[in-house]
Amino acid sequence: MPRCRTALIAALFAALHTPLSLAQDLPQDDGQARCDAPRLRLDVRKEHAALRQLYWGHVNALLKDESFRTFSRALLERDPELADSLALHRAAHAEGRHFEPPRRLTGDNPAYPDHLIGRSSGEGMVLLHMLVSADGTVERIIHVDHPDLPVAQAFVDIAIQQIRTWTFSPTRIEGVAVASVVTQPLTFSSPYGYLPPGRTTPPEPAPPSWRNGNAADWGAPD
C-alpha cells in the first residue's frame, strides 16, 4: 500500500469523524459572525461533500489494491475451518465441477446509527469475512481489521450484529450443499450528509455517496 494513500485515508477518516460545530458555537453577541453563519454552513457542507467524495474514492481504490487483498486472504488462510472451505471450492473450480455460489435470501443492510445523526459526520466501511454453513446460516464472522481502513467500532458492532441474522442459499458443488466463505463490504454513509449540530431532520436527504452491494468477487475462490 503506498504510504501517501495510507496517510490520506487516515486524514480523510479523521476529518469526517470530527464533531460538527462551526456556526452553532459562534458567540451570540458577535453580530457579524451571526450574519456570516449561513455562509459558513454552506461552505462546510461543500467541504464535507468534497471530503466524502475523496474518502470513498480512496477506499474503493484500497479494496482493489493487491497488497490489501493479500492481507485479507491471509486472514482466511490462518483459520483452518475457513481455509478448508476455500480449498474445497478451489479444487471444484480446478476440476471443472458444477459450482453454485451462495446467494443472500434474507437480511437487511445495517442502517446508519440514529444516535450519530446530527452529532457526527463520521462515515466508514466495514469489511467482513463470514462462514456460511451448508444450511445457509452465518456461523462465524471475522472483521478485516486493517490499519489502512480505519472504522469506528460502533459501525463494526452494528455490522456484525446485523449480518448474524442473514440467511443464504448455500454453495452447492455438483448439487451438494457445502459451507462457504463470503466476504462482504458494508458501508456506513450518513443519509443526510452534513447537518448542523443538534439538528436530526433535514429538509431532504442528500444522495448517497456509496451503496451497500453484493460481495462481488470478494467471496469467490481465487
Rank of each mutant, 00 (worst) to 15 (best):
R45T: 14
I160A: 10
T167P: 04
R140H: 15
L128P: 02
L116N: 04
I173N: 07
T106D: 07
L20P: 02
R104V: 00
E66A: 14
L22N: 15
V182Q: 07
L8E: 15
H143A: 14
A49G: 10
Q161G: 15
L131T: 10
H89M: 10
H58A: 03
T18H: 13
A206Q: 13
V181E: 12
V156L: 01
Y112G: 02
P2C: 01
V151Q: 09
P170G: 08
D30C: 05
L16F: 00
L62A: 13
I141R: 11
E123T: 09
A215V: 04
P207R: 05
R39Q: 08
V156T: 06
H98M: 06
A220F: 10
S21C: 12
A215M: 10
V126R: 11
Q162D: 14
T167L: 00
D25I: 00
A111T: 12
H93Q: 13
T137C: 14
E123R: 08
K64N: 11
I117V: 15
Q53I: 04
A152V: 01
T137V: 15
P113N: 03
H143N: 14
F168I: 01
L12M: 05
T183R: 15
P102K: 06
V132E: 11
P207H: 07
P2V: 00
F168Y: 14
T201M: 14
R90N: 10
I142S: 13
L88E: 15
R103P: 00
A177R: 11
V151Y: 02
L12W: 03
R164G: 01
L12H: 11
G219D: 09
G96N: 07
R97E: 01
R172H: 07
L127G: 03
A92C: 05
Q162T: 15
G175P: 07
I160K: 11
I142A: 11
A11D: 13
H58W: 09
V181T: 10
H98C: 02
A216Q: 09
D135F: 12
K64R: 12
S180E: 01
L116F: 07
S180M: 01
I117M: 11
S169L: 07
W166G: 01
T165M: 02
S67D: 12
P185C: 06
P147N: 10
F68Y: 15
V156K: 01
R164N: 08
R140Y: 12
V178S: 06
H89E: 14
